[in-house]
Amino acid sequence: MVWNTLADNINYAVAMVLFCIGFYTLIIRSNLIKKIIGLMVMQVSVFFFLVSVGYLDAGRAPIVVPGEPPSAMVNPLPQAMILTAIVIAVSTTALFLSLALRFYRHYGTLDMDKAKEDQR
């Protein structure tokens, strides 16, 4: 029973596994760029989850074609949400990378642990 639902919802399960991979990368790596990669994996996993939520069996793209029934189109709302969320993710990542660049200029390393506290 549980395995059946899991097999039906394999997209969700993959998204959650990706989320965990991203989370693990984020906490275990001390290199900032790798941490950012982990964050991006987390973000993408949530997008993947949301797109899957909007899926419809044998559905087509949500673009109106005269003569086709509207009920056969997939859910456009999660797609619109993800469009918003992707722009947010891009903005966050760009800001984070510029901070990482500045951090590297200042401390000469991308490693959060190696950069000494007392350096200004």
Binding site: N11, M16, G59
Partner: peptide, 23 residues
């Protein structure tokens, strides 16, 4: 975290079902 999230996945409505609340 993985156990919690996978557990949630097993409870979610089946993907692609036209009767889902989302659809």
């Amino acid at each position: 975290l993985a156990v919690l999230l996978i557990y949630v996945v097993t409870l979610l409505p089946a993907m692609g079902d036209p009767d889902n609340p989302t659809n």
